[in-house]
Nucleic acid binder design. Structure first.
Length: 461
RNA sequence: UGCCCUGUAGCUCAGUGGUAGAGCAGGUGACUGUUAAUCACUUGGUCGUUGGUUCGAAUCCAACCGGGGCAGCCA
């Protein structure tokens, strides 16, 4: 007899004569001749209450069945006499599978997220983290479905890469050289040609450039995989290892790119709200009282859309004191982005057409000579969740840009080739998976939505 | 990387210069339906570390270590 999932039993229309559940004891309440067990098997937020009378098999040996232990309970699914649950199991037998002694760190009370991070191997056994990671799974699936439904192809871009991409932040080096005795070149520098790949390699910071090559063949593609940034960022929304979704569309301009980003965010939120209603209740009730309203608001209204220039004008005219001055040509700071999305528009905002000096070499120059076809989607509470652009498809302009940014044409020969052979307008964006999950759950720290978060100084587990 | 906050029992925290406390958890007992069960009793501490000030330091000061927040960088 195989175990049945509590998620399924909870939905049962009728009582059942013979059921088996296996899971972990959340709490035990003793009475003189019987006890209650609350058992969670991870299949859903709810735990199943089992009533174990003294005539149940295993009752005599049940002393070790305490919080944290794993158990098998066989019995009948019956309507509960008590309040708080529809169904409970009247146990015919109870069996201790694996005990948990009094050192088991999870107690039947609230723990701080900071404490639970230190026991990240056990925290998924709590209601909060169980819900986070069930939703994480469903969200990932919703993302694949979104693209699959629209005939996008899923491309696996490399995780080890040689492109010191975009001249952006620091990269993690990938090497098999002996750090104590690396081969040296004539100038005393490490000779990467002797390394495993015959050159310097890194963990990817983005699959975009490779994604563009596949969009230039399959049409519409997306990537969804781990991404690594070695920046010494210490904030609640940065991790050194995170997952990113990067669609890339051939024959597509910035307007359609923004349309897709907005549709994407709405669609996956809608799907998660339907498929994870129970788990989301926990966040609505205990994490953020305004969360439900905010998600429904996002679904019901179009995103606001402003150019960078308009955003600057709004910020300059709003009369609010900012720590950092707002000036055309300067990056919007967190406080500015937050003002736009949280106070001025009170909704997600897409800001587009940024000054070209602020953006990387691959973004397409606009006709005004000053801006590029870039866009960021900002959401309340988190800030930037999507960054994207239309790519520069014109060979001469791309080469010119690369020169300006000090990027070697030789290293990116294959990327430049796309502009030589059948070039076409194309666009895409990158979306931080964890940031989206934070937005949907209202969880305030990225370390609480990744099973084993990697941040500067921390790689335990 | 910069600025700020913080470290007391297994957990959450009180104690702010004069003999270390509470709730929960753990243990023992009671209880015929509990829901973070309840009730009674009970175990449990080099007050992060090192140094300094003081007759006396959990308390004041410094450094270091750990945790957190904000900013920059971005997703």
């Amino acid at each position: 007899m195989t175990r049945q999932l509590i998620a399924d039993l909870m939905k049962s229309e009728t009582g059942l004569d013979s059921v088996v559940i296996q899971g972990w004891v959340r709490t035990r309440r003793d009475s003189k001749t019987f006890f209650f067990l609350e058992i969670n098997d991870g299949s859903c937020l709810k735990s199943m209450q089992a009533v174990v009378n003294e005539d149940a098999a295993g009752y005599a040996d049940s002393k070790g069945i305490a919080t944290g232990a794993s158990v098998t309970v066989k019995g009948r699914l019956v309507a509960s006499q008590g309040k708080g649950q529809k169904w409970e199991i009247q146990a015919d037998s109870v069996e201790l599978v694996g005990s948990a002694d009094e050192t088991f760190p999870l107690q039947k009370k609230r723990h701080s997220n900071e404490y639970l991070r230190e026991i990240a191997h056990l925290r998924p056994r709590t209601n909060f983290y169980g819900a986070v990671f069930r939703i994480r799974s469903k969200l990932a699936f919703a993302i694949h479905r979104f693209f699959n439904d629209r005939q996008f192809f899923y491309v696996h871009t490399p995780i080890v890469t040689a492109s010191d991409c975009e001249g952006a932040g620091e990269l993690f080096r990938v090497s098999t050289l002996d750090p104590k005795n690396p081969p040296l070149g004539e100038g005393g520098e490490i000779d990467s040609s002797k390394d495993f790949f015959g050159r310097s390699t890194y963990l990817t910071v983005s699959g975009q450039l490779e994604g563009e090559t596949y969009a230039s063949a399959l049409g519409n593609i997306y990537t969804f995989g781990p991404t690594f940034r070695a920046e010494n960022s210490n904030t609640s929304r940065h991790a050194s290892e995170f997952w990113m979704i990067e669609p890339e569309m051939a024959f597509c301009d910035l307007a359609a790119d923004m349309d897709l980003a907005e549709e994407f965010v709405k669609s996956v939120i809608k799907e998660v709200m339907e498929s994870c209603a129970d788990d989301l209740e926990l966040f609505f009730n205990f994490i953020d009282k305004e969360l439900r309203q905010r998600l429904e608001f996002v679904l019901s209204r179009p995103f606001q859309r402003v150019t960078y220039t308009e955003a600057v004008e709004i910020l300059q005219a709003c009369g609010k004191k900012f720590e950092n001055k707002v000036e055309w040509g300067v990056n919007l700071q967190s406080e500015h982005e937050r003002y736009l999305t949280e106070e001025h528009f009170k909704s997600p905002v897409t800001v587009y057409d940024y000054p070209k000096e602020l953006k990387p070499f691959y973004m397409r120059a606009n006709d005004d000579g000053k801006t590029v076809a870039a866009m960021d989607v900002l959401v309340p509470g988190i800030g930037e969740i999507v960054g994207g652009s239309q790519r520069e498809e014109r060979l001469e302009l791309l080469l010119e840009n690369m020169k300006k940014h000090g990027i070697s044409e030789k290293d990116y020969w294959w990327y430049v080739d796309l502009r030589r052979y059948g070039s076409m307008p194309h666009a895409g964006f990158g979306l931080g998976f964890e940031r989206l999950l934070m937005f949907i759950t209202g969880v305030g720290n990225i370390r609480d939505v990744i099973p084993y978060p990697r941040v500067p100084g921390h790689a335990e587990f």
